[in-house]
């Protein structure tokens, strides 16, 4: 009997390391990823949820006690009828289109050129990234000088070919173009490097055999490079779309007046992010500002979804 009972404690003793081992293999990965989720929870998820809560209140700085005034969907209803909001949506999409589309095409071209054997290739490849590592404030301040109405270099150059001085901040199109130039200048190199990385993963044999079949460089680019790059292009399109929908620093600093958050004298380049900031931090309408943030989140989610569906469609066409 005594013999029978003996193994028991031994088994229990052996189970502990096993459990510890299991905990280690099953639990450790969670512990390793936990820091990200903790940080994300504190700085990402909590603000997101709290903003959602604030957006349902009538909280504004000029009304004491309004922070606990629950108003339901009223802020969102007001938003739906707010011409300034729709103006900001229009501006955001407009600036987004004319900054993203040429930018990505340009980046593709630059990447294609960088993919050739060039002298000092590494230097040039690093060089295209330089605009991206400069600060948005510094870049925009320089561009504001370049786009100056009276003494700006752009107007001076245009003057050489007989074009009258343009007040870049004043017009809708002129301000959109100027801001897009800033965005394009900063991000083309970044996207070019991503494309370049994608291109280098394309087997060289494909080009070789295409060349043997007599395909021109352009033909190679169109029928080998672009299709093989599709996942990379999809990635850059989504990232650029999100980036352009969140456009903030450039239009803020492009406005040199006393009211940088209004996006021009007629709100002609007030983007969604700028309008949120204006309502929240300039007009101190916390509840309403929060509602715009959430609306913006919804719009971005919508755009990304459209992107993905479109991408899937494209792939479907490809397969058939």
């Amino acid at each position: 009997m005594a013999v029978m009972t003996r193994p028991r404690p031994a088994a229990a003793h052996a189970a502990l390391p096993v459990r510890r081992y299991r905990l280690d293999t099953k639990g450790a990965p969670y512990a390793f990823v936990a820091p990200f989720f903790v940080v994300f929870g504190v700085f990402g998820l909590f603000p997101l949820v709290y903003t959602g809560y604030v957006s349902l209140t009538g909280w504004r700085a000029d009304t004491p006690g309004s922070e606990s005034a629950f108003v339901g969907w009223r802020n969102y209803v007001a938003l739906w009828h707010d011409p300034f909001f729709w103006n900001a949506v229009k501006n955001t999409i407009g600036i987004g289109l004319i900054s993203t589309v040429p930018q990505l095409l340009l980046a593709l071209g630059v990447a294609h050129l960088l993919n050739y054997k060039l002298r000092g290739r590494t230097l040039i490849r690093m060089g295209v990234l330089l605009p991206n590592v400069t600060s948005v404030a510094a870049v925009t301040i320089i561009f504001v000088q370049l786009f100056g109405r009276d003494y700006g270099m752009v107007n001076w150059l245009l003057g050489l070919v007989g074009v009258d001085h343009v007040d870049w901040q004043a017009g809708t199109w002129t301000s959109w173009i100027a801001i897009s130039v800033i965005v394009t200048w900063r991000w083309t190199g970044y996207n070019a490097l991503i494309y370049l990385a994608g291109m280098q993963a394309i087997p060289f044999e494909l080009y070789e055999s295409a060349a043997l079949d007599g395909a021109s460089r352009w033909r190679q680019f169109r029928t080998i490079t672009v299709p093989m790059l599709r996942p990379t292009i999809l990635f850059t399109v989504i990232v650029s779309t999100i980036g352009s929908l969140q456009l903030f620093g450039e239009p803020l600093l492009f406005n040199t007046s006393q009211t940088p958050t209004t996006g021009g004298s007629q709100h002609q380049f007030q983007t969604l992010a700028l309008y949120t900031y204006d309502q929240f931090w300039q007009k101190f309408k916390y509840g309403y500002g929060a509602a715009i943030s959430w609306a913006m989140f919804g719009i971005i989610a919508l755009f990304v979804a459209v992107n993905l569906v479109a991408a899937r469609r494209m792939r479907g066409v490809d397969a058939s």
């Binding site: 000029d62 004043a170 006393q258 009211t259 209004t262 004298s265 007629q266 300039q282």
Partner: peptide, 20 residues
């Protein structure tokens, strides 16, 4: 909102100056 109101009117005058 004294300051913000003044700025809003100022911006409107700017649009007249800009001819927009």
């Amino acid at each position: 909102h004294q300051g913000d109101i003044g700025n809003a009117i100022g911006n409107a005058l700017t649009t007249v100056e800009q001819g927009t």
